[in-house]
Write a protein that binds this DNA or RNA. Structure first.
Length: 253
DNA sequence: AACCAGGACGTGA
DNA sequence: TCACGTCATGGT
C-alpha cells in the first residue's frame, strides 16, 4: 500500500470516527442551517466558507489566535480572545494604539506574554497593509514570531489557501503509524507536509478537516501516553501498543 | 507535583 | 544545518 493510499484511508477513518470538526473557531460565527445540538460555540462544521474574504475581523481573530496558541492549550487562548473581544481590541488599528503593558496584561493567560505581545504587534503592522489581499507564505515567515505552522494555519484557515498544517500532534501520530517503516525525514516540517500535499490535489476542505481531526485524535487517543484501547486507527497503525506504557521509560530510575 | 499544552527564536558547535 | 535552552501561564 502506498503512503498516499494510507494517508487517504486514515483521513476517511478519522472523519468517520470524529465527524466534521468545524475549524477554525470564530467567536462571532453564527452558524446558518441548524447546527448540531451539542456543538461547541464558534465551530462551524461543514461550512468551509468562513471567514468570508471581506470579514477582516474574522481573519484577524484567526491569525491572532494562531499566534496565541503557540505551545499553549486552546482553552487558554479562548479566554484571551473573549477578553480581547470585550475590550474591543480585535481590530487592526486599535490593536496598534494599545499600550504594550495593557496588551500584555490582556493576553497573560495564554502564556509567553512578552514574546506574544511583540509577535502580535509585528503581525498586526503587516496585516493592516494587506487591505484584503492574501499574503504570500514567505511574507508571513519574514515576520518575527511567525514560523511554518503559524503561517500555514493563517493561510489555510483565515485565507482558505490549500496548505497542510503540520504540528507536534501530526508528528507524534504519524511517527507511530509509520513506526515500522517510516518515510524518510518524518520529523522535518516540509517533508511531512509534502506527504499530505502529494496525497491530495490542493484541497483546502480536506486540509482543514484533516488537521482538525489530527488534533482531536491526539487529544483523545494518541496522547503522549497513548490510549490505544478503542483507537479508531488501530488497524492502520504500526505502533507496538501492547507493551507501550510500562516499558517505555524502563531505563529511568 | 511534575507534566503538558494546536511553536518560534537565539545561540553555539 | 542542528541540537538545545528559553520563553510563562494554567489545567491535570
Amino acid at each position: 500500500m502506498t503512503y498516499t493510499a494510507r494517508i487517504q484511508k486514515i483521513y476517511e477513518t478519522l472523519y468517520d470516527s470524529y465527524g466534521p470538526q468545524g475549524w477554525w473557531p470564530l467567536t462571532r460565527s453564527q452558524q446558518k442551517n441548524h447546527a448540531h445540538p451539542l456543538q461547541k460555540r464558534g465551530y462551524h462544521p461543514l461550512d468551509y466558507s468562513l471567514p468570508i474574504p471581506t470579514d477582516h475581523h474574522g481573519q484577524l481573530e484567526i491569525c491572532i489566535g494562531a499566534i496565541l496558541t503557540q505551545n499553549t492549550s486552546w482553552t487558554q487562548v479562548e479566554k484571551v480572545l473573549h477578553r480581547l473581544t470585550e475590550l474591543q481590541m480585535l481590530h487592526g488599528e486599535l490593536l496598534l494604539l494599545t499600550e504594550t503593558d495593557i496588551l500584555k496584561e490582556a493576553i497573560k493567560p495564554s502564556g509567553y506574554f512578552n514574546q506574544k505581545a511583540k509577535k502580535i504587534n509585528a503581525f498586526t503592522l503587516f496585516f493592516n497593509t494587506l487591505n484584503g489581499r492574501i499574503p504570500a507564505r514567505q511574507e508571513l515567515l519574514d515576520i518575527w514570531g511567525i514560523g511554518p505552522e503559524t503561517a500555514d494555519s493563517m493561510l489555510l484557515y483565515a485565507f482558505h489557501v490549500p496548505v497542510f498544517v503540520v504540528d507536534a500532534y501530526t508528528r507524534r501520530i504519524f511517527s507511530r503509524i509509520f513506526y515500522a517503516a517510516p518515510p524518510h525525514h518524518l520529523q522535518d516540517y516540509h517533508h511531512l507536509q509534502h506527504l499530505f500535499h502529494s496525497s491530495y490535489d490542493s484541497n483546502h476542505v480536506v486540509f482543514k478537516e484533516y488537521h482538525a481531526l489530527i488534533v482531536q485524535h491526539a487529544k483523545t487517543h494518541c496522547k503522549k501516553q497513548p490510549a490505544c484501547r478503542a483507537c479508531p486507527l488501530a488497524s492502520h497503525c504500526e505502533y507496538p501498543s501492547h507493551h507501550a506504557s510500562p516499558m517505555e521509560n524502563r531505563d529511568e530510575r
